[in-house]
Design a binder for these strands. Sequence first.
RNA 1: CCGGCCGUAGUCUAGCCUGGACUAGGACGUCGGCCUUCCACGCCGAGGACCCGGGUUCGAAUCCCGGCGGCCGCACCA
Length: 548
Amino acid sequence: MELKPAGIEEIMRFLIREAVVFPTAEIYSSKQAFSGFYTFGHLGTLLVEEIKRLWRRRFIWSKERVYEISGSILTPTIVWKASGHLDSFWDPIVFCTRCNRTFRADHLIEEKLNLKAEGKSVDELTEIIRSNGLKCPVCGGVLSDVRRHYLMFKTKVGVSVEDNAVLRPETAQVIFLSYPRIRNVFGKPPFGIAQIGRSYRNEISPRRGLFRLREFEQMEIEYFVLRDAKCIPFSREEAERKGIVGEDLRYRPKCMDCKRCQVNNCPYFTEEYRKTLLRILTREAQLKGSEEVVEITADEAVKRGILPNEWMAYVLAEEVRFLTEDLGVPFNAIRFREMLPEETPHYSAGNFDLEICFSFGWKEIVGNAYRTDYDLTKHMKMSGVKMLEEVNGVKVVPHVIEPSIGIERTILTILSYAYVKAKVDRKYDWLKLHRKVAPVKAAVLPLMMPREYAREESKIARDIWRRLCEETEYHIVYDEKGSIGSRYKRYDQWGVPYCITVDADTMRDNTVTIRDRDTRKQVRVKLEKIPAIVTNLIKGRIKFSHLE
RNA sequence: CCGGCCGUAGUCUAGCCUGGACUAGGACGUCGGCCUUCCACGCCGAGGACCCGGGUUCGAAUCCCGGCGGCCGCACCA
C-alpha cells in the first residue's frame, strides 16, 4: 500500500484557518516573535481530550496496577542535577567572530576533522577547535569559544536571586520523584505510574508548526520492574565489572533468554499482544544504510533478541494497537527504529522510537526508552531516600521501561492520514477522522429555517439532540444556522462521522435521516432508535451499510 | 546568528516588474433583509485590507533604505 501523508504545511494552514490551533499571542506576532507556542481552539481542545481519553482507557484503565499522577511543572533545580539534565541537556554552540554564523560545535568537529566529539566538554571542544585551527566553514573567520545553549528554562522561585527552579523538560522526573510514596501506598513493583502533562524545552528553532514546540504535552508511563541481581549485564560497564565480555554483548540489555526476573515477565504481554505485528528498523539495517524493516510478531521479536525484553515488546505492541485501532493511523505508516548507540539519550540503555511516515520523512512521535535503574539510583544518591527492593535475597533498584508519547505530534500523525483535500465532489478540505477519535460524534440538523411552520421541526430536532446528550456518552452538537449544505461542510471539516437531519417527514412518520460522512449516504430510521444507533455505530457494533 | 522565498480585509487572492484611471478588484466567510433550505455557492444589501518607519517623486500597494515578523534549509527528537 502506498502511503500518502498530507503535507504538514497544508495541515497547519487548515488548523489555523479553522481555529483548531493557532499561535499564542498572534495579535502581537508582528511586534514580538514568540514561536514554538500554540493555543488550542475549540476543536483542538476537544481532539486533545479525546486522544487522552483513548490513551487512558487503553494504557491505564484497562490494566491492573497502572496509577496516574499529575505533577507540578515548575521543579527545583536539584532534581535536574540528579537526573543528569543539568550536565547533558544542552547543545555546544560556536559563533564565527567575523560573519556571526552559528554552528553546532560537536557536529562541526565530527564533520570537518572526523573526530569523535559526542559528550565532550565545552573546554575540550574549544581546545580541539584551537589546536586543529578550525575556522568558519563559510567565511573562514575565527571561531569563538564553545558555549552552551541550555535547553531548559530556568527561573527563580521565592525571593531567591539565583535561579533555583526549572520548567520541567520532561515529565518523567516528576514520576521518579513520586515513586517512593506511590510504592508505599500501592505496594511492590511491578506497576506503572502514568502522567499526562506539559514539558518545556528552549529549542533553538521551532519548526513545522506543531512538530517542534517549546511547550508541548506528553503522555507517559514509567513501568517499574524488579530485575534479578544475577541477571545478564545490561551495560558494557556492568559486564566488565563482572568480568563477562562477549562478542554478543553490546551496550544494551539482553533479557530475552532469562525468565528469572520481572524485566522479562510482563503481565500485560498477553496472547493478543504477542501476536501483534511490529515493523522494526534494526541497528544492523541502519548500519548497512538500509531502510528495510523487519515485520514480525512482538513475541518473535523478543525470542530472536531484536527487542531487549517482554516489557519493551508489550509497549511497542500496545502503541501499534493504539495508533491503528483507536486513532486510525495506517499500519504501514508506523515503524520502530532502534536508536544507534551515539543517539541514545544519557539515561537510556536502548531506545526503540516509534516513527511515522510524514510528508517530510520518517519522524519520531514516541520515545520508548529502557531507562534501567539510572534515574532512581541517581535520585537515591542525591536525596538519600532508599528506593531498594529485595529480590532473591539481594537489594536491587527497580528498572524502568518508559513509553513517552508526544500529543501534538500525535495530532499531526492523525491529520496526516485523515486530512482530505478539496475535490470535485466535495469542494472543501475535510477530516476523515476515525470514529473513535472524532471529538464530536454526531450533529443534529433541522432542515428548515425556524419560521412559524418550521418551529415544530426545530423543536423536534432539539428534543432529539437533548435525548442524544442524555442517552449517549458522546459530544453531539445541534446547529440550525445556514443552509444544509454549508452545515454538512462545517461538520465534515470537524470530522463528525454522522449527521442527523430532521425534516417535514419527521413530523408525519417519526423518522429522521442519518448521514454517513465518508460515503455521504443517507438512510431514514425511526426517531426513537437514534441514540442506540449512534452508540452502536460509534462503538463499531454495527456498520452504516447495515442500516440501509 | 546565516542563506532562499515572502508580508494586500477573518481566509484565499488580483494589482507590484513597466508609479497616476486603485475611490485597491474578486471569491469564501461575517452581518442585515427576503425565500418551506438535503450536500460549499437561492436572491438583495452592508461592513472589512496594502506589516512598520523613512526616502525618491507633483504622485508610492507598486521603486529605494532600515526595522519587525513569517515559512523553508541547517539544527533536533516528544
